[in-house]
Amino acid sequence: MDWTALALSLRLAGWTVAILLPISILAGRFLAYRRFAGKGLIEALVMLPLILPPTVFGFYLLVAFGRNSPIGGIWQEMFGHQLVFSFEGLVVASVIFNLPFAIQPAQRGFEAVGEQVREAAACCGMSPLASLRQVELPLAWPGILTAMTLTFAHTLGEFGIVLMVGGSIPGETRTIAISIYDRVQAFDDQGAGIMSAVLVGISLATIAVTYALSARIGRRLG
C-alpha cells in the first residue's frame, strides 16, 4: 500500500476543491443569471475537458506549461523550478480539467434559485452580497456541493492528465491512480488490488456523504 501516493492524491483533490469552490460560485452564478452574446461558446469551452481525451488535454497543458512556454518561463523565473512535473503543475492542470465538474452543477444550482426570488431579495433591501449569503447560497448549495464532490472524486481517480503533466515522481506527482498502474506494471496484483479497493472505498464514502447532506437540505426545503 502506497500511503504517500494516497496522501498526495488527497492533497491534490483538497487543493483542487479549495481553488475551484470560489471559481464555481462566481462562474456558475454568472452563467446562470446573465444572458449575453457568446454565452453558448463559453459554456461549450467549459465543457471541453469533459469530452477531450485526457492525454490530448494533458499534451496541450504540457506544451503550455513547459519550460519554453511563456507561462512555464515565468514560473521558472519566480519559483526556480519547472511548473510541469511538479505538484503545483498538477494542481493547475487538475483545476482546469475539473472546470466542467465544478461549474456546471453550480450553474444549475444557481439557476434553481429563480429570478423572482432574487428580485424579492433585492426588494427586501439586501445588497448583492447579502442576497448571495442569505438567499442564493443556501438555495444553490446542493448544486455547489455536488460540484465539489464530483471534483474531489474525479481528481482522486484522474490518470491520463496526471501522467502527461506530472509524470510519476514519488511524493511529488505520483498519485494513487499512477501508483496502481505502476504496481500492475510490476506484476504486484495484490498491491494494486488493495489500493484500488481503498480508492473505491473513499469514492463511495464521498458520494454517500454528499447524498446524505443533499437529502438533509431537501428535507429542510421540503
Binding site: 426570488v117 428580485e119 439586501m126 442576497s131
Partner: peptide, 29 residues
C-alpha cells in the same frame, strides 16, 4: 438599485424564500 429604494413589493408568485420560515422571511426584509 432596488435594494437602496425603500420599496415593498408583493410578487405575483409571492417569491418567498423557500429555505426560511414565514417569520424569517419577514425578518429578512
Amino acid at each position: 438599485p432596488p435594494h437602496r429604494r425603500h420599496v415593498g413589493m408583493v410578487f405575483q408568485s409571492y417569491a418567498l424564500f423557500p429555505h426560511m420560515s414565514a417569520a424569517q422571511n419577514i425578518q429578512a426584509a
